[in-house]
Simulated scan of single mutants.
Amino acid sequence: MIRTLLIEAALFLTPFVIYGAILMATRGSLVPANWSARAVLVCALAAVALMALGLFVFEADKGAPPGSRYVPAQMKDGVFVPGRYE
Rank of each mutant, 00 (worst) to 15 (best):
I18C: 05
R38C: 06
A39H: 03
L30K: 04
A60L: 10
A25G: 10
T14D: 04
W35H: 08
G20F: 00
Y19R: 10
L13M: 11
L13E: 06
F56E: 01
A37T: 10
A44I: 11
A44W: 15
V48G: 06
L50M: 09
V71D: 06
E59W: 06
A44H: 10
F16Y: 12
Y19T: 07
L30Q: 04
Y70R: 06
G63W: 07
L41G: 14
G54Y: 00
V48Y: 08
L55C: 00
A10T: 12
L55E: 02
S29G: 14
V71Y: 07
V17L: 15
T14I: 06
M24S: 08
F56Q: 00
G54E: 00
T14Y: 06
V42C: 09
G67F: 11
L55A: 02
L53N: 00
R69N: 11
A25P: 03
L55F: 01
R27C: 08
S68C: 10
A52V: 08
S36V: 03
P15E: 01
G20Y: 00
V31C: 14
A52S: 04
L41D: 14
A33M: 09
A52H: 03
L13Y: 08
P32G: 01
V31Q: 15
R69M: 12
L50V: 05
A21E: 08
P65H: 13
P65F: 14
A21I: 12
L11N: 02
S68E: 13
V42S: 11
M24Q: 10
F58G: 00
L30I: 12
N34W: 15
A44Q: 13
V31W: 15
G20L: 02
L13K: 03
A47N: 07
A21V: 10
W35Y: 14
S68N: 10
I18T: 08
P15N: 01
V71G: 02
A44L: 15
V31G: 12
F56P: 00
L30A: 03
V40D: 04
G20Q: 01
G28Y: 07
M51S: 04
V48P: 01
V42H: 12
L13I: 08
G28V: 11
T26C: 02
W35M: 10
L30N: 03
S36A: 08
L45F: 15
N34F: 14
C43Q: 05
G54Q: 00
P15A: 01
M51P: 01
L23S: 02
L11D: 02
C43A: 15
A46G: 14
R38L: 13
F16S: 05
L45S: 13
A10P: 02
A46E: 13
V31S: 13
I18G: 01
G63Y: 06
A25S: 11
G20T: 00
A33P: 02
A39E: 10
R69T: 12
A21L: 14
V42Q: 12
A33G: 07
S68Y: 11
L41A: 15
F12D: 03
P32Q: 02
D61I: 09
V31N: 15
I18K: 06
S68L: 13
C43K: 00
S29P: 04
T14S: 03
M51V: 07
V42G: 09
F56V: 01
M51N: 03
F58R: 06
K62G: 09
R38S: 10
L41S: 13
L13T: 07
F16W: 05
